[in-house]
Design a protein around this nucleic acid. Sequence first.
RNA 1: GCUCCCAUGGUCAAGUGGUCAAGACACCGCCCUCUCACGGCGGUAACAGGGGUUCGAAUCCCCUUGGGAGUGCCA
Length: 488
Amino acid sequence: MDNVRTRFAPSPTGYMHIGNLRTALYTYLIAKKYNGKFLLRIEDTDQERLVEGATEVIFKTLKLVGLQHDEGPDIGGPYGPYVQSERKEIYKKYAEELVARGGAYYCFCSKERIDALREEAAKNNATFKYDGHCKRLSKEEVEARLKAGEPYVIRQRIPETGTTTFHDELFGDITVENSTLDEGVLLKSDGLPTYNFANVVDDHLMKINPVVRGSEYLSSAPKYNLIYEAFGWEIPKYIHLSPIMKDAHRKLSKRDGDASFEDFYNKGYLKEAIINYVALLGWSPGDNREFFTLEELEQAFDISGLNKAPAIFDVNKLRWMNSEYIKQMDLDKFHELALPYYRSAGLPEGMDLRKVSELLKGRVEVLNEIPDMVDFLVSLPEYEADLYVHKKSKSTLESSYEYLLKAGEVLNELDDWSEEAIKNKLNSLIEELGVKNSLVFWPVRIATSGKLVTPGGAIEILYLLGKEESLSRMQAGIEKLKGALDIQ
RNA sequence: GCUCCCAUGGUCAAGUGGUCAAGACACCGCCCUCUCACGGCGGUAACAGGGGUUCGAAUCCCCUUGGGAGUGCCA
């Protein structure tokens, strides 16, 4: 493909839907693949749905994930403006030209009349189609009514017979009967275009090719072709993308709180992991590779790997992928990302937080899990004595009591509270006692953490807590065991 | 209802007439191990159904079923 220019054309809703993000990604990748241009166009022709600050969210998100556009509202370009509400005059001019060319006509029908027609159709279980009432108006009458200032819309004129075929790069040729096509509104009574019209005009003027968009436009594509033809414009290549689903029946939606990029990002999913996962949702490189940076995607992406069926979003796999990215990250970087979570968890300033990061890096799947994983380092949770009973390590209340006491004694003698020293001290105790090391480590870990599951083992926890806190927690454990064993 | 589209394990998916139908996530088991996680090894699990075409069909055609989308002066 030559002279590739693609565009991401979201309407500003105030958040970046995961599905939109993927569309943006694929659109970007197609441009990059062919050394083309990637543009951003804001489709804000619906004045009733304007959301404050919504375009900024789009800029911010695209920038964050690295989908840098070559032309757009914020950076300009040769085919601006790139915001549809600023192109009002352009659409009006072309709509009038289309009327002159016979591809559209003025319609003065009231909303009430249209609603009645629609209701009638619904009653008959039929698809609504505008009845062409104003198509039959004489030229003189149209001019007179326009001159009188009557409100009007401009509707597309569609041949009553024959068929229209369009070609999609993925779906192939699709042919429909013209008689099934509705003569939809192109220019609204407020003078702004509908999506159908603005899209065609802008894509043409901005020299967009191929047109990449969601498959929800598949069934209206024939109508676009008719407009292109009426103008005598070259029809672009189309690539329609299947949707991302929450499950077999529902599309991913904002309502479920799992559809926006921001939500995931704020929970501690890495942008690289999100992009990587989403790239693979509906596209396959053809081999078994599944880790890609954006740059690698630019090389590997090809529309032949696109899947026509809808794809179900699997948070589980995203989690896994996120954890893989965390594992591959260097410690400094992870530490930096984890720090805010340590603060919110309330980890003491004096603690060796780098060590905490070392322990966590291989265990965290999503960053926002961190506080729950380290809470025990802040304060000893309430716990039951039966945590000391562990079949596999052969720990019982009795053994725990005995070895916790001994461990406390030897650790009390230790002045150098380094990991190495703690380890040596406990190991020599174990050797001296001639027991399985788990018999000592198990109760120490339980006493110092109060949790069945901890990131890291007894030695690391002792080290992190420091001597004083460790011994105090162990003492509390001894008291707890005394109570459970009924020792005075 | 009508029009269009889609269909390989629970999920993502490879496969483009000849494969014992890949791989990944999840799940289960074993190993490693002071818990968990990591890591290693292994396992369960799929061509929606029915007709054709063909020496041969997951792959091509038709029907059925299931699913999605559209049917707005929303995009």
